[in-house]
Nucleic acid binder design. Structure first.
Length: 113
RNA sequence: ACGGAGGGCCGGAUGGCCGCGGGGUUUCGGCCCCGAGGAAAGUCCGGACUCCACAGGGCAAUGGUGCCGGGUAACGCCCGGCGGGGGCGACCCCAGGGACAGCGCCACAGAGAACAGACCGCCUCCGGUCUUCGGGGGUAAGGGUGAAACGGUGCGGUAAGAGCGCACCGGGGGACGGGCAACCGGACCCGCAUGGCAAGCCCCACCAGGAGCAAUGCCGAAUAGGAACCUCGCGCGGGGCCGGUCGGCUUCUUCUUCGGGAGAGCCGAUACCGCCGCAGGGCCGCCCUGGCCCGGAGGUUCGGGUUGGCAGCUUGAGACGUCGGGCAACCGCGCGUCCAGAGGAAUGGUCAUCGAACCGGCACCCGGAGACGGGCCGGGGAACAGAAUCCGGCUUACAGGCUCUCCGUGCGU
RNA sequence: GCGGGUAUGGUGUAAUGGUAGCGCCCUAGCCUUCCAAGCUAGUCGUGUGGGUUCGAUUCCCACUACCCGCU
């Protein structure tokens, strides 16, 4: 099978819609998911509040989340779903990268099942 | 060697794999090039740029700056000086104009806190008295208070005293000399009360239109060409006339019970008008000369639409190196090299090798009496921080490292 | 991007440049069989760093944190 294309969420309304869906927290991040029920694409958004830290810390956290999503979602995400990854206060920037990937996989398993 | 002062620079490196933003190219598979900082930060100043406003003169208000000279597009920045203060010194700090233009304040303490004056004292005279007290006069040396007390020390002088006289110090004025200037030196003269605070009001000199790239321009989409209420205003004249209303005329058409009715036309009036003028109102800080705008204005509330694209957008008062000028800030010229441009926002993730700080160890080596330091071994794994229109500064944050110059003390030569 | 404001015990707030007050809270005591209320006493302080001044919560400068407004 060919992995479905990843699209990035940009609009505020998409983020708000996803926030009303399911959510699952892990040590490294918070994941929100919503089954749109239409389309084939996996869409994903990233966000970090000011609680994460200054601009350097926020951007670094978002970059690591992007990389994790790029590696994990094509294989474990479901087409037609929206996911929002939220950086956490202490862990996203410092956590071991392999553990961060496991966090996302585990969160997806709980959200889907 | 130890301690200290002032600058300058760097602030992780290399490679593999997988990615991101922009540009170019393409045989659409890909390939090539470029891609954060010294503070990109705070937004404290100064500009460029864009839009809006903008007539002249005088006056005022508000804000800012404040020794002198220079640098600069400009600055509240920088450089070089001057003055004051601190340090043995290298060097550091200073909003550093004006206190006889005026007003104000100076708590507590103290007799007295700003036209000087006299609490305790000191001296003298008079009266009572003989422990001393009261009154008049002279005096400002001493006392104590305070952040600050109307020059200081010494000698002379005197009833006691006092710049009363003298010497030195301090202060004021100052011919003249030096310096572009701030300022410095200063013959000579003056016995010399004439505080402090202007980062209190203020005075003087100088500077300043407002807003900001979410500026601004173009294209596209969509909806609307709004509603309600409140406040103030609600005059005159001219002009216009589609349609309306009223009155008149009777040229035409038509109906007629021959009185007239209806329609069209013409004339006049009226409301009306997003026409004009005046009055009026408003604006240009104020005034004068003058100008502009409105003709309904202003305000509040409600309702509706859009949150797309392109330009601005990065090559510029550019940076670095070299050469020349200048004590320096900086400037000039030629040559060479370099140049992020996103738009919920790229410049990363991961692995390997190397690696500073830091932590631990003392088997071994070196120095040392020792503590310990260096070598060595193991761990560890890089500060502050991310461009958002662009520049010049300032300020603040920053693990640590490298380097230059200078000062003090000690030792050696 | 532009602009404004605030910071005073744990909390809410006062203070012409001259000893930082007040209420609530807290602690202790009194009162009460106990609690509450009341009474008495006490602890706790000007965001940070400089400067002006004899003297700063106050004036000036820089910084920090928080809040608000406009576009």
């Amino acid at each position: 099978m060919t992995a479905p294309a990843l699209e990035t969420l940009l609009k505020r309304s998409d983020f708000l819609a996803c926030a009303r869906g399911k959510r699952q927290g892990t040590k490294g991040m918070m994941v929100q998911a919503l089954n749109r029920g239409e389309g084939e694409a996996i869409r994903v958004g990233f966000t970090c509040s000011r609680k994460v830290g200054n601009a350097v810390a926020r951007n670094r956290a978002k970059r690591r989340l992007r990389e994790v999503a790029r590696l994990v979602l094509p294989h474990h995400g479901r087409p037609g779903w929206d996911y929002v990854l939220i950086g956490s206060r202490d862990n996203t920037a410092e956590r071991d990268f392999a553990a961060l990937q496991d966090d996302l996989r585990q969160a997806l398993r709980k959200l889907h099942g």
